[in-house]
């Protein structure tokens, strides 16, 4: 949005004021996340910049909070649990979700709207309500406080993301390809894996990433459905923030920020690839 050469002084002032306002808002968006990164290298157990840090004194920085994260059994247990829960939940939601998305994209599906509403509902219902319901119901059937219970709950929460991304990819899918494949003698299974799957794979992967992030980042449901043995990383952070706030949380947060930057990059690359494959110009 360039400024025309004939802009008046008032317009110029307004233009630059607007840019400054936008800059401040971007600062508001990013600053909190960026600030915690240097703070996590604090040599003291403080949550603010020490005079030494501001003077860039190397002694004021240390890796001790990272060391604590990697040696403290509480944090390691939490990390191990997160790593055990999220991939299994993701695998469940991606497998079932992709299958259903392929079914939903057929041209004749009875009760399409109703089915879609049911499948999307875990995303719509506030987490605290899902958590309450699952807590009540899973205690009835003996799944409360078990690994399986947490995995099932997280898989349910991840499904809407898989459905949305995969159906969106399938919208642009050229169905004459599957017909051509059938015409050349491939069965439906072979057609799916050799023709359809490679083309919708970017959508499947980004749906999977969303599902993974949902599970990896989820704390409300696991707080209720899980027991101490299923304590995940976000749960440990939640306890840390509520009870004894320790700077190790900042180290964990920094690690998670790095992971999310990596995931964001992957999703962005996948989106571009998918658009290229579908012959759409990057929008």
């Amino acid at each position: 949005m360039g400024l025309p050469p004939y802009a008046s002084t008032g317009q110029k002032i307004w233009h630059y004021t607007f840019l400054v306002i936008c800059g401040l808002i971007f600062f508001f968006l990013i600053a909190p996340i960026v600030t915690i990164i240097p703070l996590s290298f604090n040599a003291e157990n403080f949550f603010t910049f020490t005079p030494g840090m501001l003077a860039f004194d190397p002694d004021a920085y240390s890796l001790k909070h990272y060391r604590d994260f990697f040696t403290n059994p509480d944090w390691q247990q939490a990390l191990a649990n997160s790593v055990r829960i999220a991939p299994v939940a993701t695998l469940l939601s991606v497998t079932l979700g992709t299958l259903a998305a392929v079914g939903l994209s057929q041209s004749h599906v009875p009760f399409r709207r109703l089915i879609m509403a049911i499948l999307i509902s875990p995303m719509i219902v506030p987490l605290i309500i899902s958590a309450a319901g699952m807590y009540f119901f899973y205690s009835r059937i003996g799944l409360q406080g078990t690994y399986l219970g947490v995995v099932l709950a997280h898989a349910a929460l991840g499904i809407p993301f898989v459905i949305i991304t995969v159906t969106a990819t399938l919208v642009g899918f050229d169905r004459s390809l599957t017909r051509a494949s059938a015409n050349l003698g491939a069965g439906p299974v072979r057609t799916f894996f050799r023709v359809q799957m490679p083309l919708i794979l970017p959508g499947v992967i980004s749906g999977g990433l969303f599902a993974f992030i949902t599970s990896f980042d989820e704390v409300v449901v696991v707080l209720f459905v899980g027991s101490a043995a299923q304590k995940t990383l976000p749960w440990q952070m939640f306890i840390g923030l509520r009870e004894q706030i320790s700077p190790t949380i900042l180290a964990v947060a920094t690690i998670l920020v790095v992971i999310s930057i990596a995931l964001l990059t992957v999703v962005e690359l996948l989106r571009r690839r998918s658009e290229r494959l579908r012959g759409l110009s990057p929008a």
């Binding site: 469940l92 079932l96 979700g97 299958l99 259903a100 392929v102 079914g103 939903l104 057929q106 004749h108 599906v109 009875p110 089915i115 049911i118 499948l119 509902s121 875990p122 219902v125 309500i129 899902s130 319901g133 699952m134 807590y135 009540f136 119901f137 899973y138 009835r140 099932l152 709950a153 898989a155 349910a156 499904i159």
Partner: peptide, 22 residues
């Protein structure tokens, strides 16, 4: 189409809709 959707639908009904109904 329904056969493809059925497993997921069943899964969501058991793991999510039933808890809400409960």
């Amino acid at each position: 189409a329904l056969a493809l959707i059925a497993p997921l639908l069943l899964f969501v009904v058991i793991t999510f809709i039933a808890p809400i109904a409960d």
